[in-house]
Design a protein around this nucleic acid. Sequence first.
DNA 1: AGCATCAATGTAACCGATTACATTGTTTTT
DNA 2: AAAAACAATGTAATCGGTTACATTGATGCT
Lengths: 346, 346
Amino acid sequence: MTKPKEVTIYDLARKLNVSIATVSRALKDDPVVSKKTKKKIFDLAEEMGYRYNHFARNLREQRTYTIGVIVPRLNSYFMSTVIAGIESVANNEGYTLIISQSSEKADKEMASAKTMFNNRVDGMLVSLAYDTEDIAHFDQFIKKNIPLIFFDRVADHPDCTNVLIDNRKGAYEATCHLIAQGCQRIVHITATPKRNVYVDRLAGYKQALADHQIPFDDKYILINNLSQEAGAQAAATILQMNPLPDAIFAANDNCAVGCMIALKKAGLRIPQDIAFAGFNNDPVSTVIEPNLTTINYPGYKMGEMAATSLINHLNGVNSIDSTNTILLRSELIIRASSLRTKSDSE
Amino acid sequence: MTKPKEVTIYDLARKLNVSIATVSRALKDDPVVSKKTKKKIFDLAEEMGYRYNHFARNLREQRTYTIGVIVPRLNSYFMSTVIAGIESVANNEGYTLIISQSSEKADKEMASAKTMFNNRVDGMLVSLAYDTEDIAHFDQFIKKNIPLIFFDRVADHPDCTNVLIDNRKGAYEATCHLIAQGCQRIVHITATPKRNVYVDRLAGYKQALADHQIPFDDKYILINNLSQEAGAQAAATILQMNPLPDAIFAANDNCAVGCMIALKKAGLRIPQDIAFAGFNNDPVSTVIEPNLTTINYPGYKMGEMAATSLINHLNGVNSIDSTNTILLRSELIIRASSLRTKSDSE
DNA sequence: AGCATCAATGTAACCGATTACATTGTTTTT
DNA sequence: AAAAACAATGTAATCGGTTACATTGATGCT
């Protein structure tokens, strides 16, 4: 019933008549220990079911080989893909992940940050919640020289690296594409301007309008939480507009899909009446009819890059702050939801 | 550049001229310490920026307050929902999660199990990979009396609790529903019979046929990995069948959706030509047209239950092995993809 | 042979908490 | 007033590793 006693280096040392220092060195494959002794020790360790005690090491080394990850939510295709990327790198390098989701709430984010701080993570990977206003809850890490990397939903901080895509460019391309399809009254559905991704996408949208001499109109900007339901509600707003917009560019695919479904139900034809573009290349974008034009977004790679950069930092490989921003490539994927060029024939 | 020295209970003790024992006790709010002393200590701890060192405690207590979680993949709606449930409970109870994905591979699962074992998790929550054959890699936990709970993709083990739904019943209901809609040649797309969920769903399907005097036919069982692409490939197989089946019951929604898209492209009408049912109530089931009939599956709750049960175990609340299986309720959600009754009018 | 060099191993302090047991001073009991 | 009971605090061993420094014995060099 009670846990069997753990085997320690003391046990191994005693049995082999060597010192614990030798055992400790052998187990880390220190070249200073002779091959013969190492073999003896490895074999006995195996035989006795020895397992390494991280806590003793951590206590001594003041490191934990643990990385804290805070994301807005786990159950989004994009985020879980990023985490898969992080995990593969971290695992390879012998790091363990502590993952927490903020559920888009600043206070949960703060609580998670505190937990991770108290768990003495060696480094942090963070993507910010919707309603996080200031990032003071991350100062504790900076102060203790614990590296902090933001990805996707980033914050400007002189001591932190950011890994993200060029959201402005992505949005610019999507909007230009809609304009090239003959659209002039383009609604942009986006989320809180607290987050860079939405600010930048809006900026790209505006830039595209400006470059094509289309006046910017405030009323074409709808702000919500980008959920599928929010997309449906946005559809109701859009249906009130007169004249109706001829295109909708949503800041994520989920919201675009919710909106499309509602508009289709209202009898509008896509793309003939309203063209659509989203963002993320979420799997639903190829399920919805017509398939959704979107920006492909390298989630797995983003996770890999963020984790690699952090671990390099921890190993002192990076000249510190050599990189402050890592930009990944994104691409416009054109699908039927925005293709109006052949509609001439109608 | 170097990390500032950490404040320890020794520092607090020295400053206040008390012993470390008193500080230690005060910090855990031990009633044996006087209120006055406690206040002094709390205040100083706050002032000096003291933070608790888990590793020292873990080393001493031989516990880690850490729970290991292994799932097949993180980026599925269902799994990430389960994890959200686990996370909420664990967080509340002061436990930290170490999460790893097996990517449906037995060897990755084994490696993750080893990592977690070496990280001395207090307990494990596991959902098995597709190709895991035997679960010997979990014996190390059992041997050390580390509680192990399987959820969703479970294994029969006398020492482990399982948390899951009644897959057989769910599949039975879905199949009965299809039969009630007049379907007779029902294809079942499922995955490896190594996993209980697929075995049980198949059994439910067979039972439903038997109860309605429909002969079971091997060729109506298609086995793949249930991805969306696999669904599309299954569609090709189905189109070769003569006569065509009149219904398809897929063991998950993703696969059903892939199959539906391909069959629609081939000109079949759903549900008139072929009715469809899936499993999971994934968000795509309400995006695909027609919306997909499916089994709703309480992921969040499953996560909560599994975590609660594990933590109770750890706290010695449960009479050990009092429960060996926890079954959660699931329900059939009928949507347009299977509704053929009004199609009389056609 | 005598000394320096080096490879292999050992000794012991240290990391920061927990806690059984000991000690002190104060209050209650008889 | 002495003894018993108790509240508050202290002492010191312990958890299992890491590593600076010390020691030992063998080899190389002149």
